[in-house]
């Protein structure tokens, strides 16, 4: 089950980054996100699975769709994209990413960087009631960290970070509004962005 979901996620992602048409890519990306959400469920994290579906696959993707709609990318865009993406462009980045992947997988394979579950449980002084005891390791598969625990953690230990995240969102909102606003400009030449246009009515 886990492997199936993982393969779906990876294949969908691979397809998403290689599509020429942006809308197709988005559809594959949604598939990828949905499979990651399923992975979350399997990992015992139903809350973030829901969040993944709602926010990532829902809200953020809708933003993309809107923008693509506004940009009005048609078949000619696919042609242009084909020109921008010759096959040999994949070689260098592919190698680089392969090396990085190798480096990421190396410590996983020989286990040296991951402490065992038992010692970690000693180190954890958290009061969350769902922490399993050492006496019942077989219960681990049922151990689901639900929204309640996440909420308690979020609004106790990470309260300051939550507020900072609020600031970040506000800044994103203001920034997006400011940047995306259409300014009345006489000409939109390629070099025009270097010179801020100050020709207001005053």
């Amino acid at each position: 089950m886990f492997w199936l979901t993982s393969i779906v996620a990876i294949v969908a992602t691979l397809l998403a980054i290689s599509r020429l048409n942006a809308t197709h890519a988005l559809l594959y990306l949604i598939v990828s996100f949905l499979s990651v959400a399923v992975l979350f469920l399997q990992l015992g994290a139903p809350f973030v699975a829901a969040i993944e579906v709602i926010v990532y696959a829902g809200a953020i993707m809708v933003l993309f769709v809107f923008v693509i709609m506004l940009l009005n990318l048609g078949p000619h865009a696919v042609e242009g994209e084909r020109q921008l993406l010759p096959p040999h462009a994949w070689i260098g980045p592919g190698l680089l990413a392969a090396v990085l992947l190798l480096e990421l997988l190396m410590p996983l394979s020989n286990n040296q960087f991951i402490p065992t579950t038992g010692t970690a449980k000693h180190a954890d002084h958290s009061t969350i009631p769902t922490i399993p005891t050492e006496a019942a390791p077989q219960l681990q598969e049922r151990m689901v960290v639900g929204p309640k625990e996440v909420g308690i953690k979020l609004f106790s230990t990470y309260l300051l970070a939550v507020e900072l995240a609020g600031f970040l969102l506000l800044a994103g909102l203001v920034g997006a509004f400011h940047i995306g606003r259409e300014e009345p400009r006489t000409s939109a030449k390629p070099g025009a962005m270097e010179v801020p246009s100050q020709e207001g009515p005053a």
């Binding site: 680089l96 990085l100 410590p107």
Partner: peptide, 16 residues
């Protein structure tokens, strides 16, 4: 972006 990636590769390599 490639520069950042190469840097990451080198740093990870140095750690490993």
């Amino acid at each position: 972006a490639a520069g950042i990636a190469v840097g990451a590769v080198f740093c990870l390599g140095a750690v490993l």
